[in-house]
């Protein structure tokens, strides 16, 4: 079963929830327990754990290379490219691949009738797999700085779990492609929010997106007490369950800031996370493994 931890607004506590949840359940002797850090632009989960790297590998994308001695400047590749990644000026015999815009779809190679296009691999980022305990593993997706989209790296990280067991996906913020790619494979989504007007506005956007994707979800309100009541009215109206409330607490904030798991210091929270997890698995865990 895959559970994604997501939020429209950044900084609401996705990583706090993912890491503390994973730590709590990893002691439960569940076979194949994974935490996948899908926030490939800014991965932070490994700040909270010490783990031995089991393996690490690059995620590559193919990019065209034009052999100008064979190129006739016919412009067919430019026409086939839906991303404007090939610049061509036939009169001056200039053709250039703009690698930053290329998505590696291969359409230009198909278009070229003169065998002038070959491909090379460029790295988009790395996947690292960490041993946590004998049944638990952490997978980290890390996008290379300067790369446009984290999506291929996220895809590869999720694939690395083998899709079996209990998989916690720490999602990137927002509601666009990196988020979609992460929650697309999830059986359940936990949305983490805060009780502020910004938090509520972004929560609504996330809920609407999940509705179009037919994904069941519940909400964790983080830093509760530090905001208003509008969010409770909204959740009540939409029939979305509140799975947990984490109060604003300088002690929790302090542990987080130092890269520590707060469940280690506030033991009662470990049980809160386990109970929440069990009730989600009971209700939604049968749809897949």
């Amino acid at each position: 079963m895959k559970i994604a931890i997501a939020s429209g607004k950044g900084g609401t506590g996705k990583t706090l929830v993912s890491t503390n949840l994973f730590y709590s359940i990893s002691k439960q002797n569940i076979k194949n327990c994974f935490l996948v850090d899908c926030d490939a632009e800014e991965p932070n989960d490994m700040i909270f754990f010490k783990g031995k790297v089991e393996k690490t590998f690059d995620v590559n994308q193919k990019v065209p290379v034009i052999n100008e001695s064979k190129c006739t400047y016919c412009g067919k590749c430019h026409e086939f490219c839906n991303y404007n990644a090939i610049f061509i000026l036939p009169s001056a015999k200039i053709i250039k691949v703009i690698e930053d815009l290329c998505h590696g779809c291969g359409a230009c190679s198909v278009a070229c009738k003169f065998d002038a296009i070959s491909e090379k691999e460029v790295s988009l980022g790395t996947i690292s797999r960490f041993y946590f305990n004998k049944s638990s593993t952490i997978v980290e997706a890390k996008m290379k700085i300067g790369v446009m989209s984290p999506v291929p790296v996220i895809k590869a990280a999720v694939k690395e779990t083998g899709n079996e067991g209990i998989i916690i996906l720490d999602s990137p913020p927002g509601t666009s492609c990196p988020f979609i790619q992460t929650v697309a494979t999830a059986d359940y989504v936990i949305l983490v929010t805060e009780p502020t007007p910004f938090g509520l506005s972004d929560l609504k956007q996330s809920v609407d997106t999940l509705k179009t994707m037919n994904k069941p979800c519940g909400v964790i309100i983080n830093r509760s007490g530090l905001g208003g009541n509008e969010i409770y009215d909204y959740l009540n109206q939409c029939n979305i369950p509140i799975l947990m409330e984490i109060p604003f607490d300088k002690e929790i904030a302090s542990h987080y800031s130092k890269g520590e798991l707060f469940v280690k210091y506030k033991k009662e929270w470990e049980q809160h996370f386990i109970s929440m997890f069990n009730s989600i698995v009971e209700k939604y865990g049968n749809s897949s493994n």
């Binding site: 950044g10 900084g11 632009e41 800014e42 996008m143 700085i145 300067g146 790369v147 446009m148 989209s149 984290p150 990137p172 913020p173 927002g174 666009s176 990196p178």
Partner: peptide, 10 residues
């Protein structure tokens, strides 16, 4: 701006 370092930030 948006969070992260990907295409919308660039």
């Amino acid at each position: 701006g948006p969070p992260g370092i990907g295409c919308p930030v660039i």
